[in-house]
């Protein structure tokens, strides 16, 4: 089962990295959203520091959606999903590999960029570690929940908007706890509580979301 997962992940990653736009687009989109906020609201440092955590998280949620819509599209089109449904491993390793691969091209670069962008938005230096932890724990949940929406809408025409409608309400806890962890750290308070909840969400989402993805794929292929 683990071997199946590893080979799938390797295949997905090399496919994603092969085409430059696949991994460049989410990062570019993430950057653009963040740079729009100071232009739209105010570039006053005290004010920016107040909205920086929320801006970084909203940007991560939206930029994560961008590359999600393609997650299962090719598999639906070329019929490789049917093969996965009949293998002895089941769909679980396949779904998990897709989630991890999506995280590698979205959540991982967002996490690495978060302290830099946080600094540009005026977050104090002592809160940047919390920014990294909050994104590192939260973005995998983003990929996992997003994969459920992608599996449900992947074979539909014009499914991108629909997927955003399905998935964005589920992202509310990530936004709240993720931004709160950064907020607390910026105010010099302990951020542990929100990070602990994000950690719990991380574990539950990675355990359960592949099951939901598998169920959704089975329904859509029927």
């Amino acid at each position: 089962m683990f071997n199946a997962f590893a080979s799938l992940l390797r295949r997905d990653l090399s496919a994603a990295l092969h085409i430059q736009s696949n991994w460049l687009m989410p990062v570019a989109f993430f950057t653009i959203i963040i740079s729009l906020f100071p232009l739209g609201v105010d570039a006053n440092p005290a004010l920016m520091q107040r909205f920086a955590p929320g801006v970084i998280w909203v940007a991560a949620l939206l930029a994560g959606l961008l590359s999600l819509e393609r997650a299962f599209k090719d598999d639906f089109d070329n019929g490789s999903l049917e093969q996965w449904l009949i293998t002895p491993h089941g769909v679980y390793p396949f779904a998990l590999a897709r989630i991890v691969a999506h995280w590698c091209i979205t959540g991982l670069p967002f996490t690495l960029l978060a302290p830099f962008y946080g600094y540009l938005l005026g977050l104090p230096a002592h809160s940047l570690a919390a920014a990294v932890f909050s994104l590192a724990l939260g973005t995998p949940v983003l990929s996992a929940l997003g994969a459920v929406g992608a599996a449900l809408t992947g074979c539909l025409r014009g499914g991108e908007m629909l997927m955003a409608l399905l998935v964005l309400p589920f992202y509310v806890p990530l936004l709240v706890f993720g931004a709160n962890a950064m907020d607390m750290a910026a105010a010099g308070l302990p951020a542990g509580a929100a990070l602990a909840i994000l950690g719990a969400l991380f574990i539950v989402a990675l355990l359960l979301a592949p099951l939901a993805v598998a169920a959704a794929l089975k329904v859509m292929l029927d």
Binding site: F170, L208, V219
Partner: peptide, 16 residues
Amino acid sequence: ATAVLAIVGVVNIPVI
């Protein structure tokens, strides 16, 4: 398909 979505929603509602 909406049944899958609703079940995911039921798990999520308390967290939200």
